[in-house]
Amino acid sequence: MSLEARIARLEAYQAIERLIADLGHGFDSGPSATLLRGLFTADAVFTIDGYGVLAGADAIADGVAGNADTGFRWTLHYLVSPRIDLSADGRSAAVAFMLWEAATAASGRAYWIGGSYAATAVAAEDRWRFASLTLGADLISHYPEGWHDKPAALDQA
């Protein structure tokens, strides 16, 4: 493989890692339909465990953003341990990464969520985008104590 091809593959890996990071930011920014819309192809499919399927970039962005009123109104996503298997031509990739999330439901209840994502990413003219994204939620656990405000000072031992 030529040096140019090797560099192109490294740049693709880096761009896909950025795509994963941008997904977390889009989820945690309200969520932001504007941020999310640009992360998916026009015909993308997002399968949310057993909770539903959203088809198309607009439906995904609007559906996730609209979920704040009935689902989770606040989230903090940690998307970690990405595995990126780039195709031979470098134009698509099978992607897998893990999820650890703190969330507050519209009801005000706090939850811990853990699971994994499987995705297909494709190179577009301007950036990499998800063509498919599937969430497998292995853990959705209510945290009865709920979240607390950040203390003014940390305890001193």
Rank of each mutant, 00 (worst) to 15 (best):
Gln14Glu: 11
Gln156Met: 04
Leu36Thr: 04
Ala152Phe: 01
Ala137Gln: 14
Phe46Arg: 06
Glu4His: 04
Trp128Cys: 14
Ala137Val: 15
Phe97Cys: 07
Leu54Gly: 05
Thr120Gly: 04
Trp147Lys: 05
Phe46Tyr: 15
Val80Asn: 00
Thr120Ser: 05
Asp149Pro: 15
Ala55Trp: 01
Ser116Leu: 03
Ala118Gly: 12
His142Ala: 15
Tyr111Gly: 01
Asp155Arg: 09
Ser32Val: 14
Ala42Asn: 03
Asp28His: 07
Thr70Met: 10
Ala59Ser: 12
Gly30Ala: 13
Ser116Arg: 15
Ala103His: 04
Ser2Lys: 07
Tyr111Trp: 12
Ser107Trp: 12
Gly63Met: 09
Ala96Asp: 02
Asn67Tyr: 11
Thr70Leu: 13
Asp43Asn: 07
Gly146Trp: 03
Gly71Glu: 01
Glu11Tyr: 09
Arg73Glu: 11
Thr70Ser: 14
Asp89Ile: 13
Met1Glu: 08
Ile140Cys: 13
Arg73Tyr: 04
Phe46Gln: 05
Ala42Cys: 08
Ala5Gln: 08
Asp126Met: 13
Leu79Ile: 02
Gly63Thr: 10
Asp62Trp: 04
Ala94Lys: 03
Phe97Ala: 01
Ala15Ser: 15
Ala153Gly: 00
Gly66Phe: 09
Trp112Thr: 05
Val122Cys: 06
Tyr51Leu: 09
Arg83Ser: 10
Glu125Asn: 14
Asp155Ala: 12
Trp147Met: 09
Glu101Cys: 15
Ala153His: 00
Ala68Trp: 05
Val95Asn: 01
Ser87Pro: 01
Ile20Cys: 04
Trp74Asn: 02
Gly115Thr: 10
Ser81Arg: 00
Ser2Arg: 07
Gly146Gln: 04
Leu79Lys: 00
Leu23Trp: 14
Ile7Lys: 14
Tyr117Met: 02
Leu19Asp: 03
Gln14Val: 08
Val64Arg: 01
Ala8Tyr: 06
His148Gln: 07
Ile20Pro: 05
Val95Asp: 00
Asp69Cys: 13
Ala21Leu: 03
Leu79Thr: 03
Arg37Ala: 12
Glu4Tyr: 02
Gly71Asn: 04
Ala65Ile: 12
Val64Ala: 07
Gly136Ser: 14
Leu39Arg: 06
Trp100Arg: 11
Asp89Asn: 10
Ala15Lys: 06
Leu139Pro: 02
His142Val: 15
Asp126His: 15
Gly56Asp: 06
Ser29Lys: 14
Phe130Ala: 06
Ala65Met: 06
Asp138Phe: 13
Val64Ile: 15
Tyr78Leu: 08
Ala5Cys: 03
Glu145Ser: 09
Met98Gln: 04
Gly108His: 14
Ala42Phe: 01
His148Phe: 03
Asp138Val: 08
Gly71Thr: 01
Ser132Gln: 07
Ile140Met: 12
Gln14Arg: 14
Ile84Ala: 10
Tyr13Cys: 10
